[in-house]
Amino acid sequence: MKTLDPTCGETGLEVIDIKDSSEYTARRIHVRDMATQMEGMRRIAHAFVERPETVLQELVNAAVELCQADSAGISIERPDHPDQDFYHWVATAGEYSGFLDAVLPRYPSACGVCLERGRPQLFRVGQRFFDLLGVTAPLITDGILLPWQADETRGTIFIMAHGRDEAFDKNDCRMMEVLADFAAMGIRQQGLQKRLTEQASAAAAAAMANDLAHKINNPLQSLTNVLYLAQERPEELGARALVEQASGDLKKLSSLVQELLALPYRNSR
Rank of each mutant, 00 (worst) to 15 (best):
L4E: 14
C8W: 01
E10R: 12
E14V: 14
I16M: 12
D17N: 11
D20K: 15
S22Y: 12
Y24H: 15
T25R: 15
R27A: 05
I29C: 04
I29H: 04
R32C: 11
D33K: 05
T36P: 02
G40S: 04
M41K: 07
R42D: 13
I44D: 06
A45F: 06
F48W: 08
E50T: 12
E50R: 10
E53D: 14
E58R: 11
V64C: 10
E65I: 09
E65W: 00
L66P: 04
Q68N: 15
S71Y: 04
A72G: 01
I74L: 03
R78Q: 14
P82L: 07
D83E: 13
Q84Y: 13
Y87G: 04
A91E: 02
T92H: 04
A93I: 01
A93D: 06
G94E: 03
G94V: 05
Y96E: 04
S97N: 08
D101L: 09
D101H: 11
P105N: 02
P108S: 04
S109H: 01
S109D: 00
G112I: 07
G112K: 07
G112R: 05
L115Y: 05
R119L: 12
Q121K: 06
F123D: 03
F123N: 02
F123I: 13
V125M: 10
V125S: 03
F129T: 02
T136R: 14
T136V: 09
P138H: 03
P138M: 00
P138Y: 02
P138Q: 00
L139F: 08
T141P: 07
W148C: 01
W148N: 02
R154W: 02
G155K: 01
T156H: 02
I157N: 01
H162K: 08
R164K: 13
E166C: 10
F168R: 06
F168Y: 14
K170N: 14
D172R: 01
C173I: 08
M176G: 03
E177M: 14
E177P: 03
V178K: 08
F182Q: 14
F182K: 13
M185D: 10
M185S: 11
Q189W: 00
G191M: 09
G191R: 07
L192A: 12
Q193K: 04
Q193I: 07
Q193H: 12
T197E: 14
A200S: 03
S201T: 09
S201P: 02
A207V: 02
M208H: 10
M208A: 11
N210S: 13
L212M: 08
A213L: 05
I216E: 12
N217Q: 08
S222L: 11
V226T: 10
V226C: 12
L227A: 13
Y228K: 14
L229T: 11
L229G: 07
A230N: 07
E232Y: 00
P234R: 01
E235W: 09
E235L: 09
E235T: 15
E236Y: 11
G238R: 11
E244Q: 13
Q245H: 08
D249W: 11
L250F: 13
K251Y: 10
N267H: 15
N267A: 15
S268Q: 12
S268R: 13
